[in-house]
Design a protein around this nucleic acid. Structure first.
Lengths: 201, 201, 201, 201
DNA sequence: AACTAACCGAGACGGTACGTCTCGTCTTCGC
DNA sequence: GCGAAGACGAGACGTACCGTCTCGGTTAGTT
């Protein structure tokens, strides 16, 4: 995600273009530092130093630390979990959430996402971008699965889709941010089962 | 929440004690600034300035900005919602969550909680304190309600209590932090109904 | 006197250079504050505030408050009193010391020098710099005058040059620092006369 | 030197008097810390800590760090060098200055004196006390020796006493504070000889 | 082949806030 | 009522980064 969505410069400019090597060095340094020191301890100055790059080169292309992190992780996390949506609802959901929880649990992706959410609390522009570019597509995936389930008659017609999606992702974020209990595959299965069946006897 | 739990000095110490007026002025300034500028823009220096207090007096009694905010809001939010737990499960849950969502939605309490969660991402000590002193008691309340429901035969015996609690509070935090949809009383009711009944047809 | 003597970078560096206006504003603020509040009451923060400059800009170029004061006064006091050394010893010495005492007496130069000497007591690096860059050249001037006097036969061959110089400057510093008696031109004349002739009958 | 000269309470009050042991512990801690960390690095807080005494107990009886140091050293240095004044001027002066230079050179007395002089630059009250209670008596001693010399015909009648004293003590302080050359007994002898005879051929 | 932007690294700049330190005063309690 | 203990308001310390702003130097496309 670069500085602006309006970057699609209608007129393909004539002069020197963005340095590919700097771009990569910056993203690499970002990922490394995120692992090493965590989100808030990671500074733009530190990234520039590590990447062997001028600060301005970072500010030129990204609007904030979080935008940087978002670019670094968006593609990685994004396209790893393609849409199944072909079998039963429960299986489809497990196909999505089990590996997702595992990745958040065992890599720095969790810290990165938590960092973005953190910064979004005080950066409305980033919050918007995060919702639009990252969260929305993942929510849509779940909604499609649930919608298919409704069509197939597996799920109630009167259910609240948004609320259901919030239940899944809410529980995930809650454990990710609060850390009071493990965010593992077992949890994914129980969560899915329990929401599908309800807890009423 | 002061710096240590051991403050209940069984031996009433001999020297000058904590200044009551400073203590109050600091908490007051904290609440005011939180409303005015938000969590991250609020600085310890600013609080000290506003409270007419030396910085050291803040550092002496609180370990971080978040600890300060936590003390300022813990009591306020905490004891406003006493345990109902006398009727049906659904009613009890609504008695808890409807006013809670409303408060988070319409006052600065939501921003404050989000700030604490934010800082907890990089302050393990605070994270622990937040879980132990704030989150735990609220989770316990819900667990009691659900347990009573199980005893009364309203809820399944084989349900996962922790997972159920995560579903409720997870959805709440998710909307609080991400802000993609309103955290209102309607949402509380739908969330409760849907989790109780499940979404399966 | 900037942070290093090696600043005469034979290779004219490439990046943004030191801001001339900031440099001047800092020296100006230093001199002003020295007059207004005295050496120890003068703080780096205060200088930065007065000069409209970031603290880091001061720390970048000077290692201490004293180094700052030294730069501010070195040139001023230094080159005002060129070497006479052409007539009789007594006249030459008076040409040096009379205006020097007057300046120390009637301007803030005295306070500044006292401040440097003060800080030098606890800053060996500064003490060295002060001796090398400030004191030494003034002592050398006097030694040249006295040496010429010896060659011309005006002064004894067996005199101790160092000790003689200490007698002149020692008396000056003593009155400057202790303030028990005026450091004026009369004193300069008596001091010179008395040391030249001795006090023995 | 205690806080006030008016402390000689004509009416020996009935209530608790100054604690002798605290008084001594404070002076002892002062001397120790002066040796260990030097004048400016020594703080009132540190002295109180070392002496096992409340800060207020120090502030009650001394007006500043320098006043403390002055009391600690005044008696020590003061009465060690009794007035000779019985032989020839040169011998008398050497009897005074040789051991004095040696003490300043080889003990912490030099650092202590330098510290007092340092603080006096920014504490007029202390400066006055230092001149009156410490410097004056030492100057008087020298003046008496010189006066005797004049009476005996050893020294010129038209000499400037003040200026002569400044020459001796000035050179001493100059070497003590600047440290450009040793302040030893050889220097004392040369200084005395040279000032007595003059440097003119 | 020369021109000419834009981009690059480097890092100085005015600032804010950090968390620590010490100051000199104020308050409490025990002896 | 003195003295230890230490909390208090104050404010400077030196550091870390912020985001902006020059600097030359280095690339690419045009021309």
């Amino acid at each position: 995600m670069t500085k602006s969505l309006k970057e699609q410069n209608a007129s393909p400019k004539k002069t020197r273009r963005r340095s590919q090597s700097s771009h990569e060095a910056i993203l690499k340094a970002t990922v490394e530092l995120l692992e090493e020191v965590g989100y808030v301890r990671m500074s733009i100055e530190g990234i520039a130093r590590r990447a062997g790059v001028g600060k301005q080169t970072i500010y030129r292309w990204w609007s904030s630390k979080a935008a940087l992190v978002m670019e670094a992780y968006t593609t990685v996390v994004a396209n790893k979990f393609p849409l199944p949506n072909t079998g039963k609802v429960q299986e489809d959901l497990e196909t999505i959430f089990c590996p997702l929880f595992k990745v958040l649990n065992t890599t720095t992706a969790g810290v990165a996402l938590a960092g973005i959410m953190t910064e979004a609390q005080n950066n409305p522009e980033l919050a918007q971008a995060f919702r639009d570019q990252f969260v929305a597509s993942r929510r849509t995936t779940i909604k499609k699965i649930l919608s298919s389930g409704i069509k197939r008659g597996e799920l109630r017609e009167d259910m609240d889709l948004e609320c259901a999606v919030d239940s899944f992702y809410g529980a995930m974020w809650y454990r990710l941010l609060l850390g009071h209990a493990p965010l593992d595959e077992d949890f994914a299965q129980i969560l899915i089962a329990q929401l599908l069946q309800g807890i009423q006897s």
